[in-house]
C-alpha cells in the first residue's frame, strides 16, 4: 500500500503531520513525534512579537532602578553575550533537522516586514525543510479594509518567497469573504501550500471577576467541517498543496480530509490527548479503512470526494441549508 504523499514539494511517508504545538518545544519532544510516527513535524511558532516583547522586558528590567543611587548603579552583571533574537529556536531547529529523518517545517509569526524576511532566512539556514507562515491578526481598526488586509498576506508571502528557496506554506484563517479567491491569489503569489485553518485565540469573559480570560482548548472532531468544506472546494484548483488542520480525533477525520482532497493532515490535539505515538494509531486506522475499501494508495483516496468529484457538488455549498429546508418533509412521501 502506498501511503506516500507530496506536501509542498516534500515527499512524506504518509500524510499525517504533527502541527505546531508545545510538543515540538524540545529536541526530545521532536524525536518523540518522529518515533510516534509523524511524517513531518511543524515546529512550534516563533513569534516575533514575543521576542520583541521579551527583549523590551529584558532591557527594561536590566535598567530598572539603575543609575539612581550611588551605591547601586546597576543590579546585574553587565554581560552582553545574550540571546536577544530567535537563537534558541534556531538552535533547536538545527539540532532537530540533524537529529530526525522526517522533514522539519519551521513556523513563523511576525509583525514586521523585516521580521518575516530575517527570521525566514535564518530558519532556512538552520536547516528547515519548509516554512509555515502563521499569519495571525485580528484587526481592530475599523478603517482597515479587506483589500488592505489581504494585500498584507500577499506581500508577506512574496517577500518571504523571494528570500528563501525552501517551500513556504501559509496557515490561514477562514475569515475571508472570498476564501476561494484569496486562496487563488496566494497560490499565484507562489505559496507552496495552504494550511486550513488557523484556530484563533478567542477570549472568554469571566462573569465572576469581570475579566477577559484567554481561552484556547483542544479542538474536537466537530471542528473539521469548515476546513473540510474548503479543502473539498479548493482541491484540484491550485498548484499549492493543501493541508488540513483542526479536529482530528480519530482515523475517521484523517480519512475525511483525504477524501476531500488534503495532501496532508495535521494534528496537535489528538497527540496532546493521547501522546505522540497516537500518529501510528491514526495511521493504522487509515490503513485498515483503505484495505477494507481496497484503496492501494493515498493518491487514490485523495480528493475522491472533493467538490469536483462528488455526485452533488452543491451539497458542499448549501448542504446544511438544504437539509434544513427539506427536513420537514418526509423523504418517503
Amino acid at each position: 500500500m502506498d501511503l506516500t504523499t507530496n506536501y509542498m514539494g516534500l515527499t512524506l511517508q504518509h500524510p499525517i503531520i504533527a502541527s505546531a504545538s508545545p510538543l515540538s518545544g524540545t529536541l526530545d519532544g521532536i524525536k518523540r513525534l518522529e518515533d510516534g510516527g509523524s511524517a513531518a513535524v511543524v515546529m512550534f511558532s516563533l513569534f516575533e512579537e514575543q521576542i520583541r516583547h521579551e527583549n523590551d522586558a529584558f532591557s527594561h528590567l536590566m535598567e530598572s532602578g539603575t543609575q539612581s543611587f550611588a551605591e547601586s548603579l546597576s543590579y546585574f552583571p553587565d554581560v552582553d553575550e545574550y540571546q536577544v533574537g530567535p537563537e534558541s529556536y534556531l538552535e533547536l531547529l538545527q539540532q532537530a533537522s540533524e537529529a530526525v529523518d522526517v522533514p522539519i517545517i519551521a513556523s513563523l509569526n511576525c509583525v514586521t516586514g523585516d521580521g518575516w524576511i530575517d527570521y525566514a532566512k535564518q530558519m532556512q539556514q538552520a536547516g528547515a525543510d519548509g516554512l509555515e507562515l502563521n499569519i495571525y491578526s485580528v484587526e481592530p481598526d475599523l478603517d482597515a479594509t479587506s483589500d488592505e488586509l489581504e494585500q498584507r498576506y500577499i506581500d508577506i508571502l512574496k517577500a518571504v518567497k523571494s528570500t528563501v528557496s525552501i517551500p513556504v506554506a501559509l496557515k490561514l484563517s477562514p475569515f475571508f469573504s472570498a476564501m476561494g479567491n484569496m486562496a487563488k491569489r496566494l497560490d499565484e503569489a507562489g505559496a507552496d501550500a495552504l494550511v486550513l485553518f488557523n484556530r484563533f485565540y478567542q477570549p472568554d469573559i469571566d462573569i465572576q471577576d469581570l475579566e477577559v480570560k484567554p481561552s484556547l482548548g483542544l479542538s474536537s472532531a466537530g471542528e473539521i467541517r469548515l476546513p473540510l468544506l474548503w479543502i473539498a472546494i479548493l482541491h484540484g484548483k491550485l498548484n499549492a498543496s493543501l493541508a488540513a488542520t483542526r479536529g482530528v480525533e480519530n482515523p475517521d477525520e484523517v480519512i475525511k480530509y483525504l477524501l476531500a482532497g488534503a495532501d496532508a493532515v495535521m494534528t496537535t490535539s489528538s497527540l496532546l490527548r493521547h501522546g505522540p505515538a497516537y500518529t501510528n494509531t491514526l495511521l493504522e486506522g487509515l490503513k485498515a479503512w483503505m484495505e477494507a475499501r481496497r484503496f492501494s494508495s493515498v493518491k487514490q483516496v485523495r480528493g475522491s470526494m472533493s467538490r469536483a468529484k462528488v455526485a452533488n457538488p452543491a451539497a458542499f455549498e448549501r448542504a446544511n441549508y438544504i437539509r434544513v429546508l427539506e427536513s420537514y418533509q418526509s423523504a418517503y412521501i
Partner: peptide, 22 residues
C-alpha cells in the same frame, strides 16, 4: 546584596544570576 547593587550572598538561590555569580 541589594544595597551595593546585586552581588551574590549565601542566600542567593541556585540558578540565579547575580554579580559575582554571572
Amino acid at each position: 546584596y541589594s544595597n551595593t547593587g546585586g552581588q551574590m550572598s549565601k542566600s542567593t538561590p541556585m540558578g540565579a544570576v547575580a554579580k559575582f555569580a554571572a
